[in-house]
Amino acid sequence: MSQKVKVWDFAVRFFHWSQVLLLAGLWYTGEEGLMAQHQLLAYTLLALVVSRLVWGFVGSQTARFSQFAATPAAAVRYLRKPYAVNGHNPASFYMIVLLIVLVLVQLLTGLATFDNSYMSDGPLVSLLPASWVDMASDIHKININILLAAVAVHVVAALWHSMRVHNVLWVMLSGKDHAASTYTGGVKHSGVYFILFGLLLVVLYFWQGHKLLALL
């Protein structure tokens, strides 16, 4: 049996599980009308996602988008005959791209969403034409349902894959996996990711966060 090696750095694992919690919190606060809390969670998620995008180019091998980018044909072949992969498999590339795009659409439209309250309107509402604000608000309401559906598909696929093919949930928790013969990676220290994440949080706090904390 092959020995276990580190295949996921802490940055990737922190991003993955924090995003789960933040999306759940965003859904709940949105449903309950807790707009100050909702926007604070949204800014935290924005910092998290932007940091992950940067880490996708400068981070560990398994964190880099270039490492798991795949053609549609490769993704289909993998779905027909799945197997254990150290890192993201060819099919997961498309789900990851879809989720990141949907999350960014949700966050960006939220910045321009009108909420019938001056104190909880998105910060771009006063800067954009009313027609743009209406469109952003409509997209924000529709996109959340698409995002939740995509998340549900992702969760079901991850559970099925973990039970039938490869326990990816445990690997994402522990960061360790049995190394395949083709695995040549290693992980980088996650310090750069967290420095960037912290800097973005500071910027967003001074832009909007302190105003929202005052409403709590």
Rank of each mutant, 00 (worst) to 15 (best):
M1V: 12
K4R: 07
K4Y: 02
K6R: 09
D9I: 03
F10N: 05
A11T: 04
A11P: 04
A11W: 07
F14D: 00
F14K: 03
Q19G: 08
Q19P: 06
L21S: 09
A24Y: 08
L26D: 02
T29M: 04
G30V: 09
G30Q: 05
E31S: 12
L34K: 10
A36G: 09
L40Q: 04
T44I: 09
T44P: 01
L45M: 12
L46T: 00
A47R: 01
A47T: 02
L48F: 03
V49C: 04
V50A: 14
V50R: 04
V50M: 14
V50Q: 02
R52Q: 06
L53Y: 11
G56H: 01
G56C: 08
V58T: 14
V58F: 10
S60Q: 12
A63M: 04
F65C: 10
F65A: 12
A70Y: 02
T71F: 14
P72G: 13
A74P: 00
R77Y: 04
K81H: 15
P82S: 06
P82A: 03
A84F: 10
H88G: 02
N89M: 02
N89Y: 01
I96A: 07
V97A: 15
V97K: 11
L98P: 00
L98E: 01
L99H: 03
I100D: 04
V103D: 02
Q106L: 02
Q106V: 08
L111H: 07
A112G: 14
N116A: 13
S117E: 15
Y118I: 15
Y118F: 13
M119F: 14
L124T: 05
L127P: 12
M135S: 11
M135E: 09
M135D: 09
M135W: 12
A136N: 04
A136E: 00
A136D: 04
D138N: 15
I139E: 01
K141T: 06
I142A: 10
N143C: 05
N145A: 14
A157K: 07
A158I: 15
M163D: 05
V168P: 03
W170L: 14
V171A: 06
L173P: 12
A179N: 01
S181P: 02
S181F: 02
T182E: 11
Y183V: 12
G186L: 01
G186T: 01
K188M: 06
H189V: 06
V192K: 09
V192F: 10
F194M: 05
G198P: 05
G198A: 02
L199M: 14
L200D: 06
L200R: 05
L200Y: 00
L204F: 12
L204S: 10
W207C: 06
Q208N: 13
G209D: 12
H210I: 15
L212C: 13
L213S: 15
